[in-house]
Design a protein around this nucleic acid. Structure first.
Length: 968
RNA sequence: GCCGUCUUAGCUCAGUGGUAGAGCACUCGCUUCACACGCGAUAGGUCACAAGUUCAAAUCUUGUAGACGGCACCA
């Protein structure tokens, strides 16, 4: 059999995915077992403008490991893929393209044409991640691929909107919102990030009173102010008085409609109710009193701009102040700001306001001020709080539903639970209403229509709205919904829910997109055409989904909203568990980003190290932990892949007349110690791997598999049986030479163990394991798990090894451990005494009868692995002085005669080192055991264990000391 | 400001109330016929610091220092 000497991932990666996909292995329909339990995951839909990054690769790996593991366990498994339409991002791409290619704006081409181009853009560029996921080996059911703007998902969006509106959970109103002047749309609170700027300024502006206050009692405002706080403040102008306000956004003063002071503030009490002549305008504004004002901050007097600040807005409501909007949607000043300022950009206007105040002698001072500014998460533009008429979702009742689920069912269960559960609930508790309208053309247009008088009609369709309006001509709301509004329905909208009263009955005549066709195929009607057997829909079968795998950044944006909306509309949990992955950081320890240029492209890693190595490396990161990227770590798993490849190669090179046969591990008679040991280790590993995966401890599972395969299987088992199954017969006993069936059986066992190990590795390393599994003799269709028996041969549909507790053989493990111990001690002597590898040694062993029998049985293997030509076993040692010695656990001693080779000084040093090591431990034990509190209070078995260990140590030390003496 | 996380071997990271682990790097020795992406053998850590709880603390508590994350912010 021709097998390359080193593993080349590319070849395996090219040959299997297409076959898996076209054979339908990824679909739940592949499962033929009518009683199979289901397992489902919906992918967090990557946005169509994106390409695969390391975070995706990490999350996809985890989802695929779980999906493949459950599929192999016989679950009816669905991992549903899809993408979201990324309203703002796509809109921006299309606008840019339009500008670059045609020097046009969206307004030039109109809404309809713009949307057409956005679809074209999506068709052309929106499949990047989809293709990359195939490379990853993701076992998603492509026939159920969904896009948030598919017709069926859009129907779900409209249904949800109408229902929430009808129930009063959606409303439209004037509120202060976050406005991005670059994208010219409102943003939700979650799409705004705070950025701290050290170079901020706090401007102190002097606002003159319209008329001087009554001067009785010398209560001159500016004098008061000067006396109590800022002695250096001169009066505004001769004979007049003024208030000084502090602001970080001077340009908004053009929209001031009041100045507020704290009613308890003695400095200003007498001014309450007086008017201010607002500079640069011809308006007079009142001085009002409000508890909100902090007398300690700034000057204690606050300019109030209700249309441009959330706090001012609230205050304005309380005092019935006018709301004066002075800005346009692009961040320039509007007509209300005055002729002088109209058309100026907000920051230019700021400069100009300051300039003019200075000219008028009204600029008091400018302080440096560290400020945190809200910026648009996507474009980093400074967000403008602005009064705007928008659609909102009232969150209080939905929030309570989510909190109830957590309280009563602990759902969803977060992994890791700390800190995410608390972060999630705390966020919910402080939840504010959600701004859902966006001033974009790309997305789900809001299903609200207006008549000529501005009356609103919310309906599923234009026709329905018109009907509601009594046939009047209507125009639809121009805005679209937040992309996260449709993402929030993802758990159930992707499974066929469109909002009909009976979710199981499908709408007719709407099959406009491929996805919908697919949905119909998989979501048959509750009752078949002939009124026969009821086939459960995807929604019934797969919801709640089992687990959601995502990053911290979208717990609020998506996880919480999906939880709430699913509960509200389907009355189910969206998912049972949530795995929050950590962040893969760049080599510099900072999150990967384009601006830092510290990103690592998963595709490059696939090319360099292979998909499987990248996957198992990502799975080896502790769940939820951040990790600094380092190529060396993937290299570990590239090497592991090569090890698996070569171990298989070895087995194949020695597989004449043998084939994979699970019965060969069942028949206990005729098993050698090594066989019993590796079977025990194999089953223990399988049990532990299953346990680890069930707890989402992927890194533990990887570590178990890595060490089982490399240490137990390759370093020991293969080495132990190597002589027997290779053509080399040196040192092998005659009886096996005469019974080639025994050799064939050993070959069979090693192939079988390898085959089981490959199955356990498959979820992590799908390509390599499939490639190798198909080449093993004896594998084929007949080895598929029961639920998949009609499928073609593939490792991905075999049973995941459950592990058999009965096959765990403690005695074999202990016996093997002493053989390993013996071999390691001899190797140590050889190495430290500089024995050439080619030189054979004799090994003398003194031990009790049981151990001697054990060593006798493993004579050939010990000889092979210790490079010994003679093993002398006895009750006592009888060796020349020129021997190197060691003690084994269990009271055995060994000696390697080194006539003419021994360096006595070196041997003394070696023995002393060993004594010192054991002695350190003995000291510690003695300390503990002489502590009466320990002996009395610690569990008896702990104390007993230490006493036993102490006896052992004392014996070993005594033996070593005797050996040391003997050298002198 | 509030909430929270992290600090373990040179590096990147696991880990558990009861003798500190891995991979890589380092040192020594190997063209041992599956694999040098390998084999064998060493070396390397007062588990950030301090106090407390406990028979026992790297592990639990509190505090300190440093790194970081989330949320909220008074103009």
């Amino acid at each position: 059999m021709e097998v390359a000497k080193a593993y080349d991932p590319k070849q395996a990666e090219q040959s299997h995915y297409e076959r898996w996909e076209s054979s339908g292995f990824f679909s739940p329909e592949i499962n033929q077992d009518p009683d199979a339990p289901k397992y489902s995951i919906v992918i967090p839909p990557p946005n169509v403008t994106g390409s695969l990054h390391m975070g995706h690769a990490l999350q996809h790996t985890i989802m695929d490991v779980l999906t493949r593991w459950k599929r192999m366990q016989g679950y009816r498994t669905l991992w549903l893929p899809g993408t979201d339409h990324a309203g703002i991002s796509v809109q921006r791409k299309v606008v840019e393209q339009l500008k670059k290619d045609e020097h046009k704006t969206p307004l030039d081409i109109g809404r309809e044409e713009f949307v057409r181009r956005a679809w074209a853009w999506k068709e052309q560029y929106g499949n990047t991640i989809t293709e990359q996921m195939r490379r990853e080996g993701a076992s998603v059911d492509w026939s159920r691929h969904r896009f948030t703007m598919d017709e069926s998902l859009s129907k779900a969006v409209r249904s949800v909107f109408v229902t929430l509106y009808d129930e009063g959970w959606i409303y439209k109103g004037l509120r202060i919102v976050n406005w991005c002047p670059k994208d010219k749309t409102v943003l939700s609170d979650l799409e705004v990030k705070e950025e701290t700027r050290k170079d901020g300024k706090l401007y102190y502006l002097r606002y003159p009173l319209s008329e001087p206050p009554a001067s009785a009692g010398g209560e001159n405002a500016s004098d008061d102010q000067a006396d109590s706080r800022d002695g250096d403040l001169p009066p505004a102008h001769a004979g007049g008085s003024a208030l000084i306000v502090a602001t970080t956004r001077p340009e908004t003063m053009l929209g001031d409609t009041a100045v507020a002071v704290n009613p308890k503030d003695e400095r200003y009490k007498h001014l309450i109710g007086k008017m201010i002549a607002l500079p640069l305008t011809d308006r007079e504004i009142p001085i009002v009193a409000d508890e909100y004002v902090d007398a300690e901050f700034g000057t204690g007097a606050v300019k109030i701009t209700p249309a441009h600040d959330p706090n001012d807005y609230q205050l304005g409501q309380r005092h019935d102040l006018p709301q004066l909007l002075v800005m346009n949607d692009d961040g320039t000043m509007n007509a209300a700001a005055g002729k002088e300022f109209e058309g100026l950009d907000r920051f230019k206007a700021r400069e100009k306001v300051i300039e003019r105040f200075d000219e008028l002698g009204l600029l008091e001072k400018i302080d440096d001020y560290e400020i945190s500014l809200p910026v648009c998460e996507r474009c980093k533009t400074i967000v403008e709080p602005i009064l705007s008429d928008q659609w909102f979702v009232k969150m209080d009742e939905m929030r309570d539903m989510a909190l109830d689920l957590m309280r009563t069912e602990g759902a969803p269960h977060f992994s890791p639970q700390v800190p995410h559960e608390k972060v999630y609930t705390t966020w919910l508790e402080n939840l504010k209403d959600w701004t859902i309208s966006r001033q974009l053309w790309w997305g789900h247009q809001i299903p609200a229509w207006y008549d000529a008088d501005g009356n609103v009609f919310v309906a599923h369709t234009a026709d329905e709205a018109k009907e509601k309006a009594g046939g009047r001509e209507l125009t639809q709301d121009q805005d679209v919904l937040d992309t996260w509004f449709s993402s929030g329905l993802w758990a159930f909208s992707t499974l066929g829910w469109t909002g009909n009263a009976d979710a199981l009955v499908r709408n007719e005549g709407d099959a406009r997109t491929d996805s919908l066709t697919a949905a119909q195929e998989h979501s048959p009607q509750a009752v078949s055409a002939d009124g026969g057997v009821r086939v459960p829909s995807d929604l019934e079968t797969f919801l709640p989904t089992d687990v959601l795998v995502t990053g911290r950044d979208i717990i609020f944006l998506w996880v919480s909203r999906m939880m709430m909306l699913t509960k509200k509309f389907v009355d189910k949990k969206a998912f049972e568990d949530v795995i929050i992955t950590g962040t893969v950081l760049g080599k510099d320890g900072k999150p990967m980003s384009k601006s830092r240029n510290n990103g690592v492209d998963p595709i490059e890693m696939f090319d360099k190290f292979g998909v499987d190595a990248t996957r198992i490396y990502l799975a080896s990161i502790a769940t939820g932990a951040d990790i600094k990227w380092n190529d060396l770590l993937i290299e570990t798993y590239r090497n592991f892949a090569n090890k698996i490849w070569n171990a298989t190669r070895f087995c194949l090179l020695n597989s004449e007349r043998a084939k994979v046969d699970h019965a060969s591990l069942m028949d206990r008679s005729g098993l050698s110690l090594a066989d019993r040991w590796i079977i025990s280790r194999l089953n223990q590993t399988a049990i532990d791997v299953n346990k680890s995966l069930a707890k989402y401890e992927f890194h533990t599972a990887v570590s178990l598999l890595y060490h089982f395969f490399w240490d137990d299987f390759c370093d020991w088992y293969i080495e132990l049986v190597k002589d027997e199954i290779t053509s080399k017969r040196d040192g092998f006993s005659r009886s096996d030479e005469e019974t080639p069936e025994g050799v064939t059986l050993t070959k069979t066992r090693i192939l079988t163990i390898l085959e089981i190990a490959l199955r356990m590795l498959h979820p992590f390393m799908p390509y390599l394991t499939e490639e190798l599994w198909l080449t093993l003799p004896g594998t084929g269709k007949e080895m598929l798990a029961r639920a998949y028996k009609d499928a073609e041969a593939t490792i991905m549909l075999t049973a995941f090894p459950p592990g058999d507790a009965n096959a765990i053989d403690a005695a074999a493990e202990a016996e093997m451990q002493s053989v390993i111990d013996l071999i390691k001690k001899v190797r140590n002597i050889r190495s430290e005494m500089n024995i050439k590898p080619s030189d054979k040694v004799a090994v003398h062993v003194a031990a009790n009868a049981e151990m001697l029998a054990n060593f006798t049985a493993s004579d050939a293997q010990i000889k092979k692995l210790a490079r010994a030509d003679n093993i002398v076993l006895g009750e006592t040692l009888d060796v020349p002085k020129a021997s190197a010695k060691a003690v084994l656990s269990g009271g055995a001693e060994i000696a390697v005669p080194l006539e003419g080779l021994i360096d006595f000084d070196k041997e003394r040093e070696r023995l002393q080192n060993q004594i010192a090591k054991l002695d350190t431990e003995l000291q510690r034990l003695n300390g503990q055991l002489s502590n009466a509190d320990f002996v009395n209070k610690a569990p008896a078995e702990k104390v007993e264990a230490l006493r036993e260990r102490k006896g052992e140590l004392e014996h070993q030390i005594a033996t070593l000391k005797m050996n040391l003496e003997a050298l002198n």
